[in-house]
Every structure is written in C-alpha cells, then in structure tokens.
Design a protein around this nucleic acid. Sequence first.
DNA 1: GCCCTTGTTACGCC
DNA 2: AGGCGTAACAAGGG
Length: 270
Amino acid sequence: MPEGLEAELYRRAAEVCVGRVVATVDVDPRQQLAIPIGRELVGSEVTGMRRIGKLVLVDLSMPDGDSVVLGLHFGMTGRLVVDGIAPIERLEYSSGRDDPAWDRLLVGFDGVGSMRVNDPRRWARFTLDPDETRFGPDLLDHDVATFTDALAESLAGRRAALKSILLDQSIVAGLGNMTVDEILWQVGFSPLAPAGQLEREPITRLVDAIDEHLPAMLVRGGSHTGVLEPAIRSGLPPCPRDGVALRRDVVGGRSTVWCPGHQTANGRSS
DNA sequence: GCCCTTGTTACGCC
DNA sequence: AGGCGTAACAAGGG
C-alpha cells in the first residue's frame, strides 16, 4: 500500500507535469471532505512536485500570481496514473485493475497529458494548502545527525511500543506498517519494546538501518520489497535470519510480524 | 455474507 | 494535560 516509498515513486513519475498548465479538474463528488478543488485550479501552472512522508504536494501558480498547493494522500489503495502510465502497476492489497469508475481525481493539462488518482476504496484524500508543519523528519530525505537527534528526543520518556511511535507521522514522516516491520526486523528491535528504553547507541543503529534499507527498497520498487514481506507471502515461515518461528501480533492496532529470536528490546541477542 | 486489509482520527481512560 | 490504547471508518476481494 502507498507508504512513503510509494509516494516517492509517484512523485518522481509526476515530475513530468511540472511546467504544464491545468485545463480540467474532475473530482469524485462522493469524495469525503470534498473540497472545492476544481474550476479555480484551471489555468494554474504546475511549478513543483514535492513530497513529505506519504503526502505528494503539487505546487501550483495561479494566473493571478497566487500560489496554491494540492496535497495528494493515497490512503491504502490509491494509485497515481500519469499520462496513462502507472508507476506502480500492482499495489499490495489492491486490485490490479484500473477501472475508470475508480478515478477520484482527474487533472487534464493544456495540450497533452493527464494525472489521475485511481482508488477502488475511495480512501485517497485531496487537500488544498495542507498543513506541512505537522510532520516529523522525512523517512528518505533528512540529515543524518539532525534526524538522529530528533528521533532521540521523540523517543525519550515514551512508554508506548516502539512500533506505535515509529508509525506516528509527526515523529517520522512516511513510515508505514510494512516498512516499520522490515526496519525493526533488520535492526533487531522488538516492535513491543517501550520506545523510551532505546538509548543513544541503539537509536543510531535504527537510523543506520533506515538509511541503508529504505533507499534500497525504493530502487527495488517499494515497501513490499524487503526481506520480511516476501517471506510471509504464504503463511508464517521460520525467520529467514535465524530460523526461529515468526510471530504475528497486533501492535499499535496493526498486524505485526516479527521474530522473537533476534528482535529484542535493545537489539542485542541475549 | 463475513472478515480481512491500512492510515487516520475520534474518543475514553489513566 | 497529554500519553496511550482501542475502535471506527473508508469499500472491494477472498
């Protein structure tokens, strides 16, 4: 499903739209929180394509010179299709079909080209000038030292499960259920460990794991291209690292797969 | 026809 | 007050 990695793949695909002028905007009328995006965007020029966490931000310059930002959040099953090409063909947990009836936002450009969000379950959300300050450091785009400091500050004193904290977009923007499970498996921390228990050195190892594995998964095509997710395609096999039976628990209200053998409270085997 | 899937948010409890 | 856990919600697929 679209986590930060997928949003980055969408953003890159949508960059070809920079410089184009919006000719038509159609929004699913049943879009919840439907905002009056539409006519007033017609005539605006796309000046940038940014991303914060799971949110893709389309910078628009209006004919009168005003700027507006269109925020695209893809929910669990939203796919971006640019000029008829989907950067991610088959989304985990979603249908592989591209039914025009599922188009929730369709932007046509002057001359040629289009950008649309196709979402069977209607969980995608579109906003104008979304609050960009509510996010923590981005999962991919951050300075290592600053990120480590911010994470240490965010985790300090927290008693909630490490996984719950890492899923909080105001702490790290863009991590989702799959990427958190993968990172914790890679670095060897229990998802259930109280977050505040991590000391400085384990936090630096967590940051190292994020910086090593997420860019690699991005290159491979997204949040399902780690070790853990492919391994659990059919049931719960032994842990690919140490052969201990993987567990499935609910942590932070989310289905969580982890290895009680090598994932411990401080990342050190006992 | 029930139950699964996830990100976000609302809400009650401590 | 605010951290924390839980549940509700979107809706199609199995």
